[in-house]
Design a protein around this nucleic acid. Structure first.
Lengths: 356, 356
DNA sequence: CTGAAAGCGCTTACAG
DNA sequence: CTGAAAGCGCTTACAG
């Protein structure tokens, strides 16, 4: 019915040249399949001549395994995410899986993307910077597709997630600032209903309240550079001006530092201390030297991939919430407390002896 | 032979429920196929009930179009690339194409990656931060797979590429620095045999030589943070110290600025001017305010996608070398010349009246 | 170890 | 406009 055009080489063609059956060709390229060394050699030789590569698409159709993982990500200007993406691609590659990338609109228009992902019959999905609606989660479970939320979680607990210990870290930051002798606190929030923002805000403000701080000035940065600029301006415009600012992520914290220094002429940390969350590359740059709660990318990605593989291999989906511990990396953007900062492998960390 | 497990819903199942043939289901989901509205409705209803989505993998097998573009990228810590990736994913998505991401080893071990890419029968390939060997290029042409090199090129001209006008921009930078009254020039090189490095180095040094500058201190940053740190240290350690440094990209330029300021206590631009290339996000941050040659990501990606689509649609591969013009964005990391800097849409640009 | 053949889930001439 | 059927390039029981 159709005519064979001069497309890529097929196993059929290789078989012909090698003088074996098409099955033999297939077996040659299927690890563990039973094939005589001699046959194998003939096939490999012919394959080399023709430049044959097995068609992964066709393979997927039989095996019902695409070896593709769909990844939805946004906020590419926040270094944390590209770093995650790079690591994810590498770790998947090691397992011979591949990564189909989708960029999430910030509007959270997941449904359309989700539809696209599903069409490719991915073996698993990683959602970073976007959350999944209840409905879609259900559908994944029904379809038997593992999903893991990366750096976000869902209350229902119906879908797996990997996070750092946001609330604990935020509490630690509160104690760090308290111990550093600060008095007027501010919090630059991320998108209000994002799970990480909630956990960080909760840990921070609750701890402060418990320690007798009556109020925390909360402004919305929404993980967005421009909004953060405005939020920071507001922060430093109304008096009393804060002497300690915790931004829900580094991306916003760096912006806060720039606004403080270059628009308000404030010295950091003499006039105001700034702390972030993520410990991304730029935070370590001397111009910023941002004190920040680390999110161990390597460990978090490792956990993500492990979760995915476990579910793919077992064929069953048992949601798990993984929490990877992080550390408060102390640099120079915040006044240091007298005690509690320890040196470890060349970096300074804050060790909290929390007595709750 | 095989038993149907409870996987995703198939068109067959939808057909059964809708009481139509499987062909009808297929047509319903094939834009432009001839299908009666009434039939279509029945199918859509059944599809909705079952949560049916056409299997893109199976579709690819017939159409010999995967609607997948393979992208090889590295240097994720250089903001330029994530930005490119994000834009690329979005533009492809608009055309209903998808992006399979591969992370290139810095060793340039393209072959293995290439093999993987080919197995998925991608409709096109974008190589950013990695170049293709002659051999592989041939193989792509033979297989009829469009390839475009992004931000790099190949002498042979056998494969398409998209670049900014590296040499012109570098010449402009030389003139800018000359006009700014600098005398001792240095160049922080990227990987020596990368095409963009060569073009930038050539444009810069040749222009300087032609204007009577006897020597330019060239050090190797190799696009790598740590190597750049060392290179910068060397630069500022041997006297006479340069008063003008052009780094082959922003990523290195930022590092040079940090080393100059925080390790050598130099003031920028009073003691030394620094210029970069890419005009990425961090360059605009007040802490750096890096003067930099812009690479218009949007336009470059647009050109890349256009090239790809043209070749995919036509089925023929005619290599094209696209050069997108950029501009020298003037900020505060380099002394400004008396004349030539103009204000445009809120940014300062250097307009060269080159008299060659 | 090997080949013939069924089947994966679609698309698309073909004949109505 | 519609359905039956061939075919896309593989994998994998099955029977030797």
């Amino acid at each position: 019915m159709k005519r064979k055009t001069f497309g890529p080489v097929t196993s059929q063609q290789v078989a012909q040249i090698a003088g074996v059956s098409q099955s033999a060709v297939s077996r040659t390229f299927t690890p563990g399949a039973s094939i005589a060394p001699a046959t194998r050699e003939k096939v490999l030789k012919a394959a080399r001549e023709l430049g044959y590569r097995p068609n992964a698409i066709a393979r997927s159709l039989n095996t019902a395994r695409s070896r593709i993982v769909g990844v939805v990500m946004s906020y590419f200007d926040n270094q944390f995410y590209p770093q995650v993406l790079e690591t994810l691609a590498q770790k998947l590659d090691e397992l011979n899986y591949h990564l189909l990338l989708f960029v999430g609109d910030r509007d959270g228009n997941v449904d359309r993307i989700f539809d696209q992902i599903m069409q490719y019959r991915v073996d698993g999905i990683v959602l970073a910077s976007v959350s999944l609606s209840m409905e879609l989660s259900q559908e994944c479970v029904a379809a038997g597709i593992p999903v893991v939320l990366f750096n976000r979680s869902e209350e229902s607990g119906i879908v797996s997630s990997v996070n750092s210990d946001n609330e604990t870290a935020a509490r630690q930051i509160a104690h760090f600032l308290l111990a550093g002798g600060h008095h007027r606190f501010a919090y630059v929030a991320g998108i209000a209903d994002s799970s990480v923002n909630q956990a960080r805000q909760k840990g921070f403000t609750e701890t402060l309240h418990r320690q007798g701080i009556a109020s925390v000035h909360v402004v919305q940065g929404n993980y967005d550079a421009e909004q953060t600029r405005r939020a920071a301006s507001e922060l430093f415009s109304v008096s009393p001006t804060p002497d300690a600012v915790f931004a829900a992520n580094d991306h916003m914290a760096l912006m806060v530092m720039d606004v403080a220094r270059y628009e308000f002429g404030l010295r950091i940390p003499e006039d105001v201390s700034v702390i972030g969350y993520d410990d991304t590359g730029p935070s370590g740059w001397p111009s910023y030297a941002l004190t920040s709660a680390s999110q161990p990318v390597e460990a978090m990605v490792q956990a993500t991939v492990a979760l995915l593989m476990k579910q793919i291999d077992s064929g069953t989906i048992e949601p798990e919430q993984v929490v990877v511990p992080g550390q408060l990396v102390v640099r120079h953007s915040a006044r240091r407390p007298q005690a509690g900062v320890v040196e470890k492998d060349g970096v300074s960390l804050f060790q909290l002896q929390e007595v709750e």
